[in-house]
Amino acid sequence: MPDAQTHAENVRLSAAKITAALGGLRPKLALILGSGLGGLARLVERPVILPYRDLPGFPELTVAGHVGQLILGTLSGVPVIVLSGRKHFYETHDAYPLKTMIRAVRAVGVETLFLSNAAGSLRAHIGVSELMLITDHINFLGLNPLVGPNDDAFGPRFFSVTDAWDPGHRAKLKHVAKDNAITLHEGVYVAFRGPSFETPAEIRMAQGWGGDAVGMSSVPECLLARHCGMKVAGVSCITNMGAGLSAESLTHAHTLENAGKGAAAFEKLVLAAVKVL
């Protein structure tokens, strides 16, 4: 785990490498692709690929479905940064690689972070392979990536997350989905740490809290992005019903398979949404 000075230097060096690779592009939007949704990366026009391993302080990924590449280019003619893969907090206790990734893209001028993930549905009307717009979250990870000394160069010690998932961007995504005949549910995302899937009792608890989908990511990225002044939007691809809500067997392979089934709608939504976010 690096000290604050090393972390700040990693952010600076990574941002410099990204800026050099961008050429004349000035993206204001970055997207993080979740499990089974990495296929969107193939749609990036004139891509420039930077492996995470070449960016100081970036995460080293270990989970299937997460490639570990930063891709520069355009989607629907809009300059973007696509982050293909993330490090989950069931893999590590160290928040610094994720901090470096988020803060580096902020340092090159990104203003909005679009998060995607694979999630389990807590509601019968939100079906498998459908999409859910994240309206709010419940952090049940047992951690916050900003615990520890605050670095005022990146953001304030205390900050509001009342509008963590930006209301203006949510409204735009709803309009895009309607205009393109894409089913887009809305709901609250509950983040568990994993790596085990939730028990039926935990699913009932999350339902009682007002949750609509459950997963193992996205909340830390949201918090880090909001801390350094970015707006955040997010969509879950529903890959299964929560434990006890169906007879299906929950496995990571099952997650990837069903994310793939929802990928076409996700890609269609993103290709239209980048024009308005």
Rank of each mutant, 00 (worst) to 15 (best):
A41T: 00
F58G: 00
L72E: 00
L122H: 04
M101D: 06
P47K: 04
L141D: 03
H227M: 02
S246P: 10
V235H: 00
M241W: 09
P220W: 01
L29P: 00
G194I: 05
G34M: 01
I81E: 04
A95V: 04
E202D: 12
G36Q: 05
V48W: 00
Q207G: 07
G39D: 03
S246G: 13
S129E: 14
T239I: 05
L245Q: 10
G36N: 08
G36K: 06
G120W: 04
A104R: 11
H125T: 14
V78G: 03
M1A: 15
D94E: 10
A181V: 14
A4I: 15
S196M: 13
M1Q: 14
P145W: 00
G208A: 14
G36R: 02
V11S: 04
P149H: 11
Y90I: 07
G194M: 03
M1T: 14
P56K: 10
T255N: 04
G109C: 10
H137F: 12
N240I: 08
F158V: 14
P195D: 02
E248M: 07
R193S: 10
H66C: 00
T74Q: 13
E60K: 15
M101N: 02
K231H: 14
E45T: 12
G77Q: 11
I134T: 13
A8H: 13
L146N: 08
D94V: 07
H254Q: 15
A16M: 10
M241T: 06
T183Y: 09
A95E: 08
P2D: 14
H88E: 02
M216T: 00
I182N: 11
R106L: 04
I126G: 06
L250K: 10
Q69D: 15
L113H: 10
I32D: 01
G262Q: 08
G23K: 02
T239R: 07
T112Q: 09
A243C: 09
M241A: 13
P56A: 10
G244I: 07
A8G: 11
A272D: 12
R123Q: 15
A265H: 14
A30N: 01
K275W: 06
A107Y: 03
T74G: 04
R123F: 09
